[in-house]
Every structure is written in structure tokens, then in C-alpha cells.
């Protein structure tokens, strides 16, 4: 049998990357640090009651009175458990990872929808990103970026980006062909077809992708905490390592509450407003 040492090759590549293109990693690191720092200080600066009321109002406007009540009580509960700051750190991490994932994911999805070759390349890459166990790329992420929030964000982006790429691609491809043909028959340029026809019609699907990306980002917070990302994930991790079941559950509940609030609100962006419009 042929004996291939793939692991060995990958180690060589990782070593080479670490030694030779560290300026790139430093630049990425700087950008991520700035974005997450901005989110964190903004979320910390605003008094918690105002954030709670704002989110409650948003839930009321976009979703329903019930979800608004849940938001109010849930977030107050987080505060009462003493996790407000951790929650804001986690929220900043999730938002940063989501923003980066969308920034790259939506254009990639558009390209994949318009070009079969791009789609052919992107699909296996997405499969890898989604199924490769996160722990495997956690270590190189630490090698590249050092311990802390930045590798946590990078790992989260890797894990959370696929849904928005896939659903953007799907959304555009599902636009009825005769509508696209009609636009072309009226002399629309490819850009006009994209902006005036494909994106508006794909919007609900794209928003579902954004929702999924945010939810996946949230599910990564504990793993990200293993390399020093902090926040609620850090508290869960402490609960586990200290065998402090109560602490673990408390922080876990806080994550669940945050997840439900984010999910309901972003989901309503996709379906709710579209629904009331028609």
C-alpha cells in the first residue's frame, strides 16, 4: 500500500504560513480586534436597562408581544444572575463573527449563483468548513493569531459562514427563470438583473441564511472560549473545569436566552416584515 503522510505535509504548510506570512495574520488580527473592540465598548457603554428596553421594543415591533415579554424577562434574568458583562462580550464576538461572515459570505454566494465553476469550487470548501471538527483548526488558529478573542472569532467565522453562502446561492438560483429572462429581454445589464430582480426576490432566503449564520456563531462561543475568547463561553468552561454544575447551567441558560432572542428577531427580519408588506 502507498503510505501518504498527509498530516506531515499539512504541518509543513502551517509552519511555512506561520513563518512567512505573519504580516497578513497581524493585519487580520488588527481588523478583528478593532471591530470586536468597537462592539464591546459600545455594548458596555450603554446602560443595560436601555439595551434591554431597545431589544424588547425591537422584538415587539418585529415579532410579537410574547417574544417581547420573553426578551424583557430573559435579559433581566441574565442581569440578575450577574452575567451581563459576559453576555455583552459574547454578543460582541457573535456580532463580529457574523459581520465578517456576511461580508465575505454574501458576495461568495452571489458569485456561486452566477458561475458554475465558482459553485463547483465553493461547495466542497463549505462542506469542509461545516464538517471539519472545530478543535482541529483551533490549534492552527492559535498558532497564527495567538491565544485570545481573535482566533475565537476566526474559528467562529469558519464555522458560521457556510449557511449564508449556501442560502444566498440557493435564493438567487431559485428566482423564477422567466422573471430573469424578462429582465434580460428588456435590455437589463447583468448588474441590473442582480440588483433589481435577483437580490430582491432572493432576500427572504438570504435573510434565513443570515439567521442561521448568527445561530451557528452563537453555538461556537464555548469552543472559542477554550482558546481564551471569554464571555459566557468562558463561564461555561469554568463551570466544567471546576465541576461547578450550577455555574455551568447558569451560563448555559444565559446562552440559550441570548440565542432565542437573536433567533426570533433575525428570523422576523426575513419572514415577518416581508409578510406584513404583502
Amino acid at each position: 500500500m502507498i503510505d501518504l503522510d498527509i498530516g506531515g505535509y499539512i504541518e509543513i504548510i502551517i509552519d511555512w504560513l506561520t513563518n512567512n506570512i505573519s504580516p497578513l495574520f497581524e493585519a487580520i488580527s488588527a481588523v478583528v480586534t478593532t471591530v470586536i473592540g468597537g462592539f464591546e465598548s459600545a455594548l458596555m457603554w450603554v446602560p443595560y436597562l436601555i439595551i434591554i428596553l431597545l431589544l424588547t421594543a425591537l422584538a415587539w415591533w418585529l415579532v410579537s408581544r410574547g417574544i417581547a415579554a420573553f426578551t424583557l424577562i430573559g435579559l433581566l434574568l441574565i442581569e440578575a444572575m450577574g452575567f451581563w458583562e459576559d453576555t455583552m462580550v459574547t454578543l460582541a464576538l457573535v456580532l463580529t463573527a457574523a459581520v465578517i461572515a456576511l461580508f465575505f459570505g454574501i458576495p461568495t454566494g452571489i458569485l456561486a449563483a452566477r458561475n458554475k465553476v465558482v459553485e463547483g469550487i465553493v461547495r466542497p470548501v463549505l462542506d469542509t468548513m461545516q464538517t471539519m471538527p472545530a478543535f482541529v483548526y483551533l490549534i492552527p488558529a492559535v498558532l497564527f493569531f495567538g491565544l485570545g478573542t481573535v482566533p475565537g472569532v476566526v474559528a467562529t467565522v469558519v464555522f458560521a459562514m457556510p449557511p449564508v453562502v449556501r442560502l444566498t446561492n440557493l435564493g438567487i438560483r431559485q428566482v423564477q427563470p422567466d422573471v430573469v429572462e424578462a429582465a434580460q429581454a428588456f435590455g437589463a445589464t447583468p448588474k441590473q438583473v442582480l440588483v433589481k430582480v435577483q437580490l430582491p426576490l432572493a432576500l427572504p432566503t438570504i435573510l434565513a441564511g443570515i439567521n442561521q449564520t448568527i445561530m451557528l456563531a452563537l453555538s461556537m462561543v464555548v469552543i472559542a472560549a477554550m482558546i481564551g475568547a471569554g464571555g459566557l463561553g468562558g463561564q461555561v468552561l469554568r463551570g466544567i473545569t471546576q465541576l461547578n454544575v450550577g455555574l455551568g447551567f447558569e451560563a448555559g441558560f444565559a446562552i440559550v436566552i441570548l440565542a432565542i432572542v437573536l433567533d426570533r428577531i433575525t428570523q422576523a427580519l426575513g419572514t415577518g416584515r416581508q409578510g406584513t408588506k404583502q
Binding site: 423564477q176 422567466d178 422573471v179 429572462e181 424578462a182 433589481k196 430582480v197 430582491p200 426576490l201
Partner: peptide, 8 residues
Amino acid sequence: FQHFGLLP
């Protein structure tokens, strides 16, 4: 167009 191709 047969199926109209309108923008919904």
C-alpha cells in the same frame, strides 16, 4: 411571456 415573468 407565457407565465408573465412579473416582479412579485
